[in-house]
Nucleic acid binder design. Structure first.
Length: 405
RNA sequence: GGAGGGAUAGCCAAGCGGUCAACGGCAGCAGACUGUAAAUCUGCCGGCUCAGCCUUCGGGGGUUCGAAUCCUCCUCCCUCCA
């Protein structure tokens, strides 16, 4: 059963190109009862999915719910080139085994969002490896350098006098060819992919197909609220992370960023989110809505029970300032001279260097058994277990021993 | 083949002989406050036996009382001309 829901289809999108065509296409599909092919490409590396990826996955899921088929393309060929969008240069080719392993990891994760019944996973080496040189030339002939330079990042780099390697021009062409090989009706991607997706249209036309529709989603900002979410920047929330981590990280995003997350990662209906927005504008505490969002995310990637427990622990920790203290103690050997506090912190793994410890002591961040340490020269001798804390998040149990370890 | 530009702490980016452990922005950390790990304000943000000392500005060598700053060689990156 295929149905058509334009508001859900268009929800949160950056652009739909060309809007009228896509509208007609999906409306007609619903009438004719014929499922359309929705394509989205993914990198063969980085199999750790995070909330940023789910923006796209959520959209794909929406199409599945409407009855269409999603082609989950793993770009094992294009991955060797490396999309020039970032700074990445040519990547080294992954072995077939590595690709298979990464793909397995994908499959283990994507079905937390996608419907396995309506998902087809494909690899683009299948047709790109088979492409003859003359076919590559034909592809290359389909676009001019000027056209390539329309792409924003190419244009910028060119103007700034930064290098652009020839093979980087091939990337969009190959990605576009994927759409030809799949006879895609619609391609969904991040807004940074716009140019590549449009190349797909042009190529399909050149190969006598109906050009695919293009739908772009905004890039989700990471925890810092500035850079886009990515594992390498360390500002991500992984869907496999433990409940407490996920919960805490969502609570740490700014009030402003929260709305972005509501739009792009929450599955609350648009009307509900608008309602929340109004309530906050009228004076409701944004914290409560952030708690709700955190709970939704944890429930989705773990379960309801875990999300409630995470919420409870969050409350204990930050509202009541009770700390999680049931970790394994660290044993540290102390010799005759005793152990200076800064060294203690360092060896307990709470600080990166003694200097950092010294600074934190000066800032009043260090507590031992709930007493603030103000004297950086204090020295510890062997003792029973101590509870050592730096700031609100770093905490350790420490046992100072006299004998050899 | 020729000409030129560049390499600075997690990132971006100043500095062009001393006052530089190195302006500024972002990210990070801490304290205060609070409505949360939000917002705001303040401090920190190489290392150490920490009010003092030590090692840093692509790498080596040199000039100088003194260099991130000048010279030289090397490595890497980029642009332009052919």
């Amino acid at each position: 059963m295929i149905y058509f829901d334009w508001s859900e289809l268009a929800r949160g999108t950056e652009e739909i190109i060309p809007e009228a065509q896509v509208f007609d296409q999906f409306e007609a599909a619903a009438k004719g009862g014929e499922a359309l092919t929705v394509k989205a490409g993914f990198d063969p590396t980085a199999p750790d999915l995070h909330l940023g990826h789910t923006v796209l996955l959520n959209k794909l899921r929406a199409f599945q719910d409407m009855g269409h088929t999603v082609v989950f393309l793993i770009g094992d060929f294009t991955g060797r080139i490396g999309d020039p969008t970032g700074k990445s240069a040519t990547r080294k080719a992954l072995s077939a085994d590595e690709v298979a392993a990464n793909a397995a990891t994908y499959e283990a994760q994507i079905y937390k969002v996608l419907d396995a019944e309506r998902t087809r996973v494909v690899f683009n080496t299948r047709w790109l490896d088979a492409l003859s040189t003359s076919e590559v030339v034909r592809l290359a002939a389909s676009h001019t350098v000027a056209r390539m330079l329309e792409r924003d990042d190419f244009d910028k780099r060119y103007r700034r006098g930064q290098a652009i390697a020839i093979h980087e021009f091939l990337y969009p062409l190959f990605q576009g060819y994927d759409s030809v090989a799949l006879a895609a009706d619609l391609e969904v991607g991040g807004s940074d992919q716009k140019f590549n997706l449009l190349v797909g249209r042009t190529l399909q036309q050149a190969y006598g197909q109906t050009p695919q529709g293009v739908l772009t989603m905004p890039l989700l900002e990471g925890l810092d609220g500035v850079e886009k979410m990515s594992k390498s920047l360390g500002n991500h929330i992984g869907i496999d992370e433990p409940p407490d981590e996920q919960f805490g990280k969502i609570m740490s995003i700014s009030d402003t960023l929260m709305w972005r997350y509501y739009d792009l990662v929450s599955s609350q209906p648009v009307a509900t989110v608008d309602q929340y927005r109004r309530e906050v504008t009228e004076g409701a505490n944004p914290r409560d809505y952030k708690l709700g969002l955190a709970e939704e995310v944890v429930a989705r990637y773990h379960n309801k029970r875990a999300s409630q427990a995470a919420r409870q622990r969050f409350h204990e920790r930050f509202a009541e300032h009770r700390f999680e203290t049931d970790m394994e103690p660290t044993y540290i050997h102390v010799d005759r001279e005793g152990l200076p506090i800064a060294a203690l912190l360092n060896q307990a793994g709470l600080t990166k260097s003694n200097s950092e410890g010294m600074r934190l002591i000066k800032q009043g961040a260090v507590h031992v058994d709930d007493h603030r340490i103000t004297d950086s020269r204090i020295v510890f001798s062997p003792s029973r277990e101590l509870l050592v804390r730096v700031g609100k998040k770093r905490i350790a149990r420490v046992v100072l021993t006299a004998g050899a370890i």
